[in-house]
Simulated assay, not measured.
Amino acid sequence: MALTTASTLEFLSKKPYTPPSWASHLNPLPSHVFSLAHLPTPIHKWNLPNLPPNTHLYLKRDDLSGMQLSGNKVRKLEFLMADAVAQGADCIITIGGIQSNHCRATAVAAKYLNLDCYLILRTSKALVDQDPGLTGNLLVERLVGAHVQLISKEEYAKIGSVAKGLGYAMNTSEELNFVREIAATTGVVLDPVYSGKAAYGLVKDISESPKKWEGRKILFIHTGGLLGLFDKVDQIAPLVGKWHRMDVNESVPRQDGIGKMF
């Protein structure tokens, strides 16, 4: 059966860009974009516990902008990739942390458009000479054939660094436990680098100053980044549980083959 909806016809297509009124003063204005995301992403009510009276919280799900490209990173890549193709580029080079969502999205977008991709990824000095493995974003990047080059954080720090808590992509146990609690109570999985820290700060401020937030309407943008959690499994493991081996009474008769559903 052929799929002929507007969204499927537009995906990966190049189209003229008309800026919204609030961006019309930008110079230079992009002339075209590549349609790489499934937009608009949905908005729904987010039932966080312990909100002040008459406070309404909504969640903008940019984590649902696509599969390999899920997250807000794809929004800028629609412009950057169009510019690269217009200039006749045959490869894309970008840099980020070892679990960079931007780098993963760039690798997939480049492959969609038949461009080669080189990723320069920051890692620890102890691991810079080792195979980085296939965890989280690295799995997707390497599956789509990106060229991965490693640089130590110390070498990268000579250029510059960012300090958003303990630092970029670093989390306290309180932040990770917050991510776990939100997933367990609302079903929404936040990433540890951006959305998790931002939501942690929001909820902390709401709990400390409830009167300031009472009666307000809040829109929180979930920017994606789920795969970044795979790099935190050692920190998260002590925070999660809820598993055990099921005890089966020996008096219950067992049968080989297909089991019965009751």
Rank of each mutant, 00 (worst) to 15 (best):
83 D>M: 08
55 T>I: 02
69 L>I: 15
97 G>T: 03
198 A>M: 09
78 E>W: 14
29 L>Q: 15
50 N>Q: 15
70 S>N: 14
33 V>M: 13
166 L>T: 10
162 V>S: 15
84 A>L: 10
260 K>A: 07
50 N>P: 10
223 T>S: 13
231 D>T: 09
90 D>K: 10
200 Y>I: 01
259 G>R: 04
191 D>I: 00
250 E>K: 15
140 V>T: 11
131 D>I: 03
107 A>M: 04
49 P>H: 12
196 G>N: 01
215 G>E: 08
260 K>E: 07
183 A>L: 06
101 N>V: 03
181 E>P: 01
15 K>I: 14
123 T>G: 05
151 I>D: 05
102 H>A: 05
114 N>E: 08
1 M>E: 04
12 L>C: 13
206 I>E: 03
168 Y>A: 07
152 S>D: 04
180 R>E: 00
227 L>I: 02
202 L>M: 11
191 D>G: 01
228 G>L: 05
215 G>P: 08
104 R>S: 05
107 A>K: 02
18 T>P: 05
131 D>P: 00
89 A>M: 07
116 D>V: 01
98 I>L: 12
176 L>H: 02
203 V>G: 01
34 F>C: 10
116 D>K: 10
95 I>M: 14
135 T>R: 15
88 G>A: 08
137 N>T: 12
180 R>Q: 00
53 P>R: 13
206 I>F: 11
78 E>V: 13
4 T>C: 07
230 F>R: 08
217 K>T: 07
118 Y>G: 00
39 L>R: 08
42 P>D: 01
177 N>W: 00
203 V>M: 13
135 T>E: 12
226 L>C: 06
116 D>P: 03
116 D>T: 07
124 S>L: 13
11 F>L: 12
188 V>H: 04
8 T>D: 04
234 D>F: 11
54 N>M: 03
59 L>C: 00
105 A>H: 08
25 H>Y: 15
212 K>P: 01
25 H>K: 15
184 A>I: 04
24 S>W: 08
165 G>A: 14
225 G>I: 00
25 H>S: 13
252 V>D: 11
103 C>M: 06
144 V>E: 10
156 Y>H: 14
38 H>P: 01
2 A>D: 04
154 E>H: 12
210 P>R: 09
235 Q>S: 12
52 P>Q: 09
133 G>D: 04
198 A>E: 02
191 D>M: 01
42 P>V: 02
207 S>A: 12
58 Y>S: 00
110 A>M: 05
80 L>D: 01
15 K>Y: 11
43 I>R: 06
127 L>T: 07
196 G>Q: 04
27 N>I: 10
119 L>G: 01
178 F>I: 07
16 P>G: 09
